[in-house]
Simulated scan of single mutants.
Amino acid sequence: MSRTAQAHRTARPAWMEKPKPVTQAGKAIALVVTVLLVVIPFWVVIATSLAPDAQVVENGGWALWPDEFSFRAYDKVISGGVVTHALLVSVGVTVIGTAASLLCTVLLAYALARPGVVGGKPMMLLILFTFLFPPGLIPSFLVVDGLGLRNSYWALVLPVLINVFNLVVVRGFFQGIPEELYEAARLDGASELRTLFTIVLPLSKAVIAVVGLFYAVGYWNDFFRAVLYLDDSGMWPLQTVMRGYVTQGQKFTDDASQMEMTVQAPQTIRMAVVVLGTLPILCVYPFLQRYFTKGVLTGAVKS
């Protein structure tokens, strides 16, 4: 692309006024304040987890900058066995749950997006009804208990396998794919599954990435479902264990199946658990962020 064409694309539209210096300064100040409101609390948590216990106690439970950087809190948390096991549980539930949810959501959304599917409209109305009137806590518990899923990790996955909002988003994206692509696939003799996996999914990387991130964050951050369905605290995921460390002052013994209420854990250990519970999603997000604004259909249908 020539420089003239690039300048024409980046030029300000004729109808848009040139921003005033006061407006630009206000936007910059608002952006800086927003960034500081997000970064400073997270840095305080990290700094507290790396600071010595004496400094944290002296400063009233927090540290803005550690006098001495120490990973003693992380070593104590990980070597204890409970958090390590809970972290593995969370990773397994998140990976398996996200993969299963994406597969079921994509298959159901593709079926509902294609015209002429038998029972497609009643099925869609039924799904939307569950979105408007979700089941209560007691009916959900009775269903999980009746299916024999209590005290198993499937109780953390199957009840929330398909999210209606994510299903509607994926279905709408599939409906926006030009019909000419489907017709071309049918003329080439492609089956519906082949059309889905060779044509539709390559064009749907953006929505799959976004919905996959929604599912992963939901599975990773869920703590209440484990409390409700898992009687053995040794099976709890990281977020549930972290809740006990941070909010209830629980102390977990070396035996992952035992837990007792005692004096709250040191602030450094509590903040280390918070960092361990937050860091994985922060590491994954940058790799998916580019799909949020990427136009995957640009040039899909050539004139």
Results as ranks from 00 to 15, higher is better:
149 L>H: 10
15 W>F: 07
103 L>S: 14
172 G>Q: 10
110 Y>Q: 10
121 K>E: 12
182 Y>C: 02
275 V>R: 06
172 G>R: 05
94 T>V: 02
140 S>I: 09
15 W>G: 09
282 L>F: 14
173 F>N: 09
8 H>K: 13
205 K>L: 14
172 G>A: 06
177 I>M: 08
251 K>E: 03
139 P>W: 00
250 Q>C: 06
235 M>V: 04
288 L>F: 15
85 H>M: 08
210 V>F: 13
90 S>D: 05
200 V>K: 03
190 A>C: 15
3 R>C: 01
256 A>E: 02
50 L>M: 11
2 S>L: 06
29 I>T: 12
194 R>N: 10
112 L>R: 04
277 G>F: 07
91 V>P: 08
296 V>K: 01
5 A>W: 13
95 V>H: 06
280 P>R: 01
160 V>N: 12
159 P>C: 07
276 L>S: 05
88 L>T: 07
182 Y>H: 13
169 V>S: 04
181 L>R: 04
221 N>Q: 12
168 V>R: 13
55 Q>A: 08
257 S>H: 15
165 F>M: 14
93 V>Y: 06
150 R>I: 11
177 I>Y: 01
143 V>I: 15
129 F>M: 13
106 V>Y: 10
23 T>F: 09
123 M>R: 08
227 V>T: 11
21 P>W: 07
143 V>H: 07
181 L>Y: 06
219 Y>M: 12
225 R>W: 07
156 L>A: 03
29 I>P: 01
168 V>F: 13
25 A>L: 10
249 G>D: 05
105 T>W: 03
142 L>Q: 14
149 L>P: 01
105 T>Q: 08
169 V>D: 03
101 S>I: 01
28 A>H: 09
98 T>E: 06
215 Y>R: 04
100 A>M: 15
200 V>W: 02
62 W>Q: 11
158 L>T: 11
28 A>F: 04
74 Y>P: 04
241 V>Y: 01
273 V>E: 01
235 M>W: 06
230 L>P: 00
72 R>V: 09
186 R>I: 09
258 Q>N: 11
254 D>Y: 06
73 A>R: 06
45 V>P: 09
191 S>I: 07
196 L>R: 02
48 T>D: 02
82 V>L: 03
136 G>F: 01
75 D>R: 13
47 A>M: 12
60 G>M: 06
30 A>T: 06
52 P>F: 01
235 M>N: 09
115 P>T: 07
133 F>W: 14
290 R>L: 02
232 D>H: 11
138 I>G: 05
236 W>Y: 11
2 S>Y: 01
238 L>K: 00
41 P>H: 06
24 Q>F: 01
20 K>V: 10
178 P>G: 11
134 P>E: 05
249 G>T: 12
18 K>D: 03
243 R>D: 10
216 A>G: 04
62 W>D: 09
37 L>G: 03
247 T>C: 04
